[in-house]
Design a protein around this nucleic acid. Structure first.
Lengths: 168, 168
DNA sequence: CGATATCGTCAAGCGTGCTTGACTATACGC
DNA sequence: GCGTATAGTCAAGCACGCTTGACGATATCG
């Protein structure tokens, strides 16, 4: 759109040449943002349609941090970098949906272990299957070698820019 | 974390083998989401520190759709796929920050053209510079060839999964 | 001219994802 | 046993990014 704009203004074009150059040079990151947003939308959309569970992005962020034997709320909050109350609400919703359950922690009577229900585990498989399916589609378009390069590059990016700062 | 969990449960490990496989296979997309989130955070953070303008993600989504000669509110809403009222509020904030201004549209007395102020254009340069800087950092880590492969792959992803559905 | 559509704005409200503060129950160190 | 820290919950509230509805002003078409 910037390019189009500049083309409409023959006067002053030179003044914006640098700008356009910069815009073009920066497009890899803009592409990254856009690609992530689009793929995330597609994944959540497919999963919702598949499982009839009104799962949201916040839930899918939470789920991978739950260990199979169960994880304490406080620990989840620590891993996510948010308050335990915030996580508590997400867990409430997922319990309501039949995905998670709370069990007493045998090691500590104050604590409860948040863990998957049988149905939750099944849904998890479906969720992973959805991601896998999207990845297969991408791999068909991109080729295995490119896919691998992209994978490794993304790994480097994540490693370079670190994790969410832990809270309190 | 799934891996660690499975390792703690020697019994039942086979039952989760498929799951773990799926989780590993799906990690390219998870990496994509994480990389996009981290890089976006860094970019907004640097820009804010640099310009002292409390710019948010919603603003940076809006700005690239504003043509240099100015763009109507309705047109911006159409391009973004949201209501004109929503865009109006973002524009209000950016006007308050001194980044944008509203000018009468000579072609239509009902309409106003949203466009950059001088200072806004300067800030835009800085914003692009920040992205460019982040990209340079990445390119140093990844190498030019990989960077180019990633760029093209992201382009394919965006093209494959299309644009935001236009509203009304 | 008049009917109708469009541009921008005012107002109110909602869902999401968080926060802080306060409180109970249990654990643990001295 | 007692003081203090920790796990989870209840409650209230906030910022953000949106929405819908209504309206005045201007444009456009017949």
């Amino acid at each position: 759109m910037w390019l189009a704009a500049a083309e409409l203004r023959p006067v002053g074009r030179d003044a914006y040449a640098t700008e356009l150059e910069a815009a073009k040079a920066s497009s890899t990151l803009q592409l990254l943002f856009k690609a992530a947003r689009l793929l995330n939308e597609r994944a959540v959309e497919r999963l919702r349609r598949l499982t009839k569970v009104p799962v949201r992005a916040a839930h899918t962020t939470l789920l991978p941090h739950i260990d199979l034997e169960g994880t304490r709320l406080t620990e989840l909050a620590r891993r996510l970098g948010v308050s335990k109350q915030a996580v508590g609400q997400l867990v409430d919703e997922l319990v309501e949906m039949g995905v998670l359950e709370r069990a007493a922690d045998p090691a500590d009577a104050r604590a409860k272990l948040v863990r998957f229900t049988r149905r939750g585990r099944a849904g998890l498989f479906e969720g992973l299957a959805v991601l896998k399916e999207l990845e297969r589609e991408l791999e068909q378009r991109l080729g295995a070698a490119t896919m691998r390069t992209v994978h490794d590059a993304l790994g480097v990016m994540v490693a370079s820019y670190g994790e969410a700062a832990p809270r309190r």
